[in-house]
């Protein structure tokens, strides 16, 4: 009896383990399959046009067979970089204040607030962008620089995007700074350093890999964000030459057009290829920030 029982248990155990491995494999290969699928689908386009032609020209005229993605890629990069420039100092200073200066209960209040911010659906940020940020840009910020614009600009997209990624980056940064042992701060202070010197030379240095990874993950998130940006960024397929110009990021291109032009196979293939480009760029950002972590971590 005992033996039988044990056999059954062992069998069950093994069964459970193999199921887990199957599920793990699915999770593991999902991104790979996704990328492969996109690649196959973009085959039609790449047969007709060279990859360089698609990536480095900016003429987007699907009806006459011109599929230059450059303006979309540049729009995406510019919105992302701009949003990071806005979000980065805000996040760093907030995280430093919350972890180094503020009393404990402030952090306890802020944590759920940040989580709520992170959980707001992006379409709400988009609506808020149209109602608040776009007028802000057209009525106040642009005139400051002597520019006239409707407000649907890269800058508006970047501001909305920055607000969206702030809670995301902030959460990671708070964890990064909290994981730095207090004793390290004590050691620096005991040498006669001020709080600020300690933060500048010890905390930021110790947290550097974490900061890089937080920003890297923020970038990959910002780069792929679709709906909120699409609503405020203007969507004009031209290479933007300034922050007060409208842009047309990659995700917006796909979201706006997919499904409408299914009758033109080349068009569909071109959109698939832009999805692949998006996918690869986000993966590269992710990978780079992960490499950065392991590279700096040991010091």
């Amino acid at each position: 009896m005992m033996l039988q029982n044990r056999e059954i248990r062992r069998l069950r155990d093994r069964l459970n383990v193999s199921w887990m491995i199957v599920i793990l494999a699915i999770v593991l290969f999902l991104p790979l399959l996704l990328g492969l699928g996109l690649f196959v689908q973009s085959g039609l386009l790449l047969k007709e046009l060279s990859i360089w032609n698609v990536l480095f020209t900016s003429q987007w005229m699907p009806m006459s067979g011109k599929f230059g993605l450059l303006s979309f890629i540049l729009s995406s990069l510019m919105v992302t970089v701009l949003s990071l420039l806005i979000a980065c100092p805000v996040c760093l200073l907030t995280a430093i204040h919350l972890t180094q200066y503020a009393k404990r209960y402030v952090l306890n209040i802020m944590h759920p607030v940040i989580d709520i911010l992170a959980g707001i659906p992006s379409v709400i940020y988009g609506v808020w962008g149209i109602l608040a940020v776009v007028p802000l840009v057209s009525k106040y910020i642009a005139p400051l620089f002597g520019v006239q614009t409707s407000g649907y600009t890269l800058l508006a997209g970047a501001i909305v995007l920055a607000i969206m990624i702030i809670p995301f980056i902030l959460n990671i940064l708070i964890e990064v700074f909290r994981s730095i042992p207090t004793e390290l701060t004590e050691a620096s202070l005991a040498l006669g350093a001020t709080r600020w010197q300690t933060i500048k030379f010890v905390i930021l240095r110790k947290g550097f890999p974490g900061i890089i990874s937080a920003l890297g993950l923020g970038i990959s998130r910002a780069f792929g964000e679709t709906i909120a940006v699409l609503m405020v960024v203007g969507n004009v397929a031209k290479i933007p030459t300034g922050i007060f110009q409208p842009g047309y990021p990659l995700p917006a291109l796909i979201a706006n057009n997919y499904g409408e032009m299914m009758s033109i196979p080349m068009y569909q293939s071109a959109l698939m290829f832009s999805a692949l480009v998006l996918f690869v760029i986000v993966m590269l950002f992710n990978l780079a920030s992960r490499i950065a972590i392991t590279k700096f971590e040991t010091k």
């Binding site: 004793e183 390290l184 004590e186 050691a187 005991a190 006669g192 030379f201 110790k206």
Partner: peptide, 20 residues
């Protein structure tokens, strides 16, 4: 206070070398 702290070297339970 920083000057007061400077007058006192601190050695903690476990060594915490600065990240440099």
């Amino acid at each position: 206070v920083p000057e007061i702290r400077r007058k006192m070297g601190l050695l903690s339970q476990r060594p915490y070398p600065l990240p440099m």
